[in-house]
Design a protein around this nucleic acid. Structure first.
Lengths: 153, 153
DNA sequence: GACTAATAGTTGCATTATAAAACTAAAAGT
DNA sequence: ACTTTTAGTTTTATAATGCAACTATTAGTC
């Protein structure tokens, strides 16, 4: 392997990146979330090589992020599981950061809204247990039982 | 390995991934956020090859996520900029997802707390403008002026 | 029911990013 | 003046990526 595995790192971030932290994975997950669920459609949407797409889809399926199933049209499609949908905060954080720092000259590319009211959602942010918005400097990391070393953010 | 660039994709997610969506980048950003800021320290912390680390650090510096500066000890160090700290929601989303789906047998690896109260922060979640927690199915994507095609999440 | 087209991949080969190790120049410490 | 640490660079190999062509299965049409 020319890629070093992150599996031995005892860090939940590294564990997540081992599964989802690869060039195409989150774009595939984005497509399935947007309703692009069939092999050829994803391939055309992303311009990804077909063999690489095969590899990524089977990895995401093995990890329980996608399930392969026969869709309404009778064709196979890849659907997000609950585990996959749980990546939504991550996806939206990436969308919003990209929109903030690499904006399109003509304005916002996509706007995410609450389906009931139609109003835009709030920016992804860190909140205290009593609901206050926290600045990055106000978030500290404490070791838990699964870890040994003391770390401070 | 050749890599297709995401820069031509008119998608803020793809733009973000072009900068930050690479195996090591977010781990480097994690380290700098945790106070591991010097070349050798990052290299030992991650086990990353030195030439790759050089490449990543200069990319992250060129993108304005890190700045290279002389630290208190007189040594060079890489510090997060505001743009870099704005990735915190993304990092915490990844941490929490990894903790949920790849937990450590002995319990939570890290606990992020509000520095003033010491209480754990809330799980990263999507909220409507009036503060309600939204389920993934309740979030819709609308095209903005920077985009042409209609997409629904 | 045979023929055609679309779908969902697989195979083989060329390219290049990654990795590992050894090497180097500059600064810091003694 | 000497050694050590730091922050990289250089060199070589290997494996992941990308591309194009090919294949097997399913769906639609006459």
């Amino acid at each position: 392997m020319k890629h070093t595995s992150f599996k031995d790192m005892n860090c939940s971030l590294a564990q997540s990146l081992e599964i989802v932290g690869e060039r195409w994975s989150l774009l595939i997950i984005r497509d399935t979330a947007f309703g692009i669920r069939r092999f050829d459609h994803i391939q055309q949407s992303l311009g990804i090589a077909r063999n690489i797409l095969t590899q990524r889809l089977s990895k995401l399926t093995n990890e329980g992020i996608l399930v392969k199933a026969r869709g309404k049209a009778g064709r196979m499609e890849y659907q997000l599981t609950d585990k996959g949908w749980d990546l939504q905060p991550l996806l939206l954080s990436l969308f919003q950061w990209g929109e903030k720092y690499q904006p399109h000259p003509e304005g916002e590319r996509m706007c995410f809204v609450d389906s009931t009211s139609g109003n835009p959602i709030q920016p992804m942010a860190v909140r205290s247990s009593d609901g206050r918005l926290l600045k990055s400097a106000d978030v500290w990391a404490k070791r838990g039982p699964g870890l040994n070393k003391e770390i401070v953010q």
